[in-house]
Amino acid sequence: MMRTIRLTRPALAVGIAAAGAVATVGPAACVLFFRRWCLTWGARDDEVAAKLPGDELLPDAGLVTTRAVTIDAPPSAIWPWLVQMGSGRGGAYTYDWIENLLGLNMHSANEILPRYQHIAVGDELPMGSGRPGVTVGVLDPPRTLAVRVADQKWVWIFALVPEGESTRLISRNRIATAALAPVGRLFYTVFMEPGSLVMERKMLLGIKQRVERTATAS
């Protein structure tokens, strides 16, 4: 025989409040989890927390992303692919068709280009016609390459950390957001952060593929 369960008003109120909390906190927790994954794709907690050479170029960044990939090669085999990056140079190893829709003239190289292997602190790497280039701020081969834009609002750091016979390639972006209006910050969170993950993930995997393919051929 089935029993009918009657909820008292206090119990019903508690149930409604709990359901409301789940409905509110659940999506919020999902958003927060996704955002952390988006900003730290492939990176371990210690890598996210680590201080990297070049962090000092923009110490008060409002937005920091740290993404990483393991490459089965030593840092010396990865370094040449990093220093030749740029518009009209080795490209960015990501989705060229997207870059070129924006007029960036990126054509990702599939080989090491000797003519682009010699850079120095203060050199400017082109980012596309009519766009400001990035200036080399830290150069410590084959460990660290850091560049920044002229307005000092963006710093991009590449760190190569050996792990046995492999290397962790860590890519960190530091972006100044203090001057952005709330709408601008929301735009960054909703569109720019996921978009940067799509492009940077492709770049990291593109470098990994090129380096490992070259190492296997050698």
Score class of each variant (00 low, 15 high):
210 R>T: 05
82 L>W: 01
45 D>K: 13
52 L>I: 10
184 G>Y: 11
53 P>D: 00
5 I>T: 13
108 S>W: 02
98 I>P: 09
173 N>P: 02
201 R>V: 07
115 R>F: 04
71 I>C: 00
32 L>M: 15
173 N>V: 09
83 V>Y: 08
45 D>V: 14
178 A>Y: 10
48 V>M: 06
26 G>C: 13
134 V>L: 09
120 A>V: 05
86 G>E: 01
81 W>D: 00
15 G>K: 15
138 V>T: 04
164 G>R: 12
59 P>W: 11
55 D>I: 01
188 Y>R: 14
127 M>S: 00
123 D>P: 04
22 V>T: 09
91 G>Y: 03
184 G>L: 09
21 A>K: 04
202 K>H: 11
39 L>I: 01
30 C>K: 12
177 T>Q: 05
96 D>A: 09
94 T>M: 04
67 R>C: 04
93 Y>M: 09
147 V>Q: 00
46 D>Y: 12
192 M>E: 06
80 P>M: 08
85 M>S: 01
85 M>A: 10
51 K>G: 07
97 W>M: 09
4 T>A: 15
200 E>D: 09
144 T>C: 09
17 A>I: 14
121 V>G: 08
63 L>Y: 07
161 V>T: 10
95 Y>N: 07
206 G>E: 02
43 A>R: 03
35 R>W: 06
160 L>Y: 01
108 S>G: 00
196 S>L: 11
72 D>G: 13
211 V>S: 03
165 E>P: 01
57 L>S: 07
172 R>E: 04
